[in-house]
Every structure is written in C-alpha cells, then in structure tokens.
Design a protein around this nucleic acid. Structure first.
Length: 351
DNA sequence: TATACGTGGTG
DNA sequence: TCACCAAGTAT
C-alpha cells in the first residue's frame, strides 16, 4: 500500500532535524516560515539561534522588531520575519497564545499561506490537511503522471486534491513530511534515484520511464540590472552614516549606506549621489575614491554597486531613519548581504 | 494571474 | 559561468 510504503520509509530514513524534536506548534511554525524557498542546511543554524533567542510565542511577541530582523539577517525574504512576528502577536493577543488548529483561522495569520497552514495543522496537530510545496508537486507529478505546469498558480489545487484523496488519516503528519522528504532525498529535480525509491512500484512515471520529463515547469524570465552608487560616509569623529530603508518593498526596514539608483551614465554618478544625499539627508558631503565594485544578484534583479568612501562636512540629524554610528554600534543593525559586502570592502581597504 | 521578494548552493 | 534552484506568500 502506497501510504504504508511511504510512511515506513520516512520512519526509517528521515533526517534528524532540530524542528523534529517535538511538535510544539510555535516551533513547527517558525521552521516552516524559515524553510520557505530556503535550503534545510541554511535554515538549521538560524532556527537554533532564533528559538534560543525567542523560545516561545510570548518571547517573540514582546521582542523588538529590530532584534527579530537581526536574527533573520542573511536569511533573505525579510518580510517573512516581520509577518511572523505580527502573526505571533495576533496569536498571543487574540488566541490566548494558542496557535489555532482551524484551517480558516490559521490561514488568516500574516505569512501563513496554503502550504504553511497545511504543514502546521498536519505536523503539529495531526490534522489531515494537504501541505503542497515544490517537492510535493514534483513527487506527485511523477507518481500520478500529472502534466500540468507546476509554475502556474492554478496547478496547486490539483495537487491539493490529489493529497486529499491520498493522505493517511492515521498519520497525516508523517504522510506530508514523507512526501517532502522523498522529494528532497530521492525524487530530486534532476536524476531522481528511482532504484532507491520506496514507492517506485506505485509510480506511473517510473513505469513508463518519464520521470526525467516531469514535472513540467515553465522557465522564468531573465531579470533586470540596476546600477547603484553608494558611499560609506564618515564625519570628523569617524562615525558612519546609515539609513533605514522604507517599511515596504525590497529589504524593507533594513539598514543601508546612502545610495542612489544611477539614472544617467557612469560619469556623473558621484555628483548625482552627492546631490541626492544633500536633498534626502540635508548633508553636505565630499565623495572620495572608490572602495569597491559589488555585484549582488537577487531573485528578480541584479544590483551593480559602485561603492565610494566619503566625508561628511555638515549634516542635520532629524530623521529616525538616519543614524551616525561607530563601527562597533553598526554591528547591532541589520544590513542586507549586499551592504555587508560593501562594509567588507571598505574595512579591507581601511588598514 | 503575474510579479516582487533574498540568499547561497550546484551541475 | 550561470540558470536554476530550496519546505511560498502578498499583492
């Protein structure tokens, strides 16, 4: 029987992962958010530090957002962290600190979409709800010979219906986790290990030899490139000017060095940056030499940063989004990896 | 429905 | 080198 073969394999072969130590709905929740579009090996150290720092719903709901972002620094998709804290506060205040076990209720929480709702409900509460991620679509497309394009949003419900038909009501937690684990370890995107697969006898793609043609997934478009000019600016005390990014959009609420998107060609960018800093931050600055050129690739765009050093002649510090900090203080603020690269270039050239 | 949203690993 | 990816969600 398919369910038995799948779950039996999972019981024998599952990886020893820190979020599998218990079924605390809060910890399951944190792990599922971190694992969105993110590799297991990357998540492990973040999960351990995060749970150590914020062990309970109570702890996370009362934490400073800046500390939460700092704990997330380097993990990417930072709105996950802010949505998680917002949703945890909601549970703390309106659900008595108990993660709801109802599909409709849990789905109203920020950052909890159809996959995460199903994952928490099945893993923490043993409720037979589908948890369809990329692994599950890949595995089931092969087992059931489903040729729909998994890149299309409309395909997910096809797989959810399949899971509703197949899911073990005896152990929905292991059933869902086993599908994902199988996708991660055996039924991989390229060159799946069908000869090691515990359910190959149930797999229609294996029977007809089409496992390498599935799943169907259309390609994404190539992304755009953006030219950035940025500067590490110090005043006569040696303090460095940093700026908090807007609360929406790319790298929301993270800190950065003053920078602009270069509209006009290369030659003027130092002047453009100087003028922008004057307008935006009411600062008179002098931009000096280049400290580095950084390419930073996001999922949907690439930044090509020309980074300069510079001096602050005068500045009106009014805005909360602006700070002059020492190098030591700077470590307390959350920066994107692109700006960490700048920092590194600057300090390597500073010796 | 399509696009914005990060990062580091990989064949 | 580089496209593709890895336990998706919000808008």
């Amino acid at each position: 029987m398919f369910q038995q073969d799948l779950i039996g394999w999972f019981e024998a072969e599952q990886r020893d992962l820190p979020w599998r130590k218990d079924k605390d709905p809060y910890k399951v929740w944190v792990s599922e958010i971190m694992l969105q579009q993110t590799r297991v090996d990357t998540v492990i150290p973040y999960f351990l530090r995060f749970i150590e720092q914020f062990p309970t719903i109570q702890a996370l709901s009362t934490a400073e957002e800046d500390r939460v972002l700092k704990a997330w620094e380097g993990l990417g998709y930072y709105s996950r962290a802010r949505n998680l804290q917002s949703a945890v506060k909601e549970v703390h205040e309106n659900y008595g600190g108990i993660v709801p076990d109802d599909p409709k209720e849990i789905s109203t929480l920020k950052g909890v979409g159809p996959y995460t709702a199903g994952a928490i409900l099945s893993i923490a509460y043993g409720i037979p709800e589908p948890a369809v991620d990329g692994n599950v679509m890949r595995v089931l497309s092969r087992i059931l010979l489903i040729w729909d394009d998994i890149a299309k949003a409309s395909s997910r419900k096809i797989f959810e219906e399949a899971v509703r038909r197949l899911i073990s009501h005896e152990n929905p937690s292991y059933f869902n986790q086993a599908l994902m684990e199988l996708g991660a370890l055996i039924c991989t995107p390229t060159s799946p290990s069908c000869l090691l697969c515990p359910v190959r006898e149930h797999c229609q793609a294996f029977q007809e030899g089409s496992q390498n043609e599935l799943p169907i997934k259309t390609k994404n478009k190539k992304h755009r490139h953006v030219q950035i000019a940025a500067a590490v600016l110090r005043n006569d005390e040696g303090k460095i000017l940093i700026h908090k990014r807007p609360e929406k959009g790319l790298l929301a609420n993270l800190w950065e060095f003053p920078n602009i998107e270069v509209a006009l060609p290369f030659v003027n960018e130092k002047d453009q940056l100087k003028e922008a800093v004057k307008d935006l931050y009411k600062a008179d600055i002098q931009i000096g030499g280049m400290i580095g050129q950084i390419e930073h690739v996001f999922s949907h765009l690439t930044w090509n940063i020309n980074a300069y050093e510079g001096k602050i002649q005068s500045i009106e510090m009014e805005s909360k989004e602006l700070k002059l900090v020492t190098i030591e203080e700077m470590k307390e603020f959350t920066f994107s990896v692109s700006h960490q690269k700048m920092m590194k270039q600057y300090f390597e050239g500073d010796e």
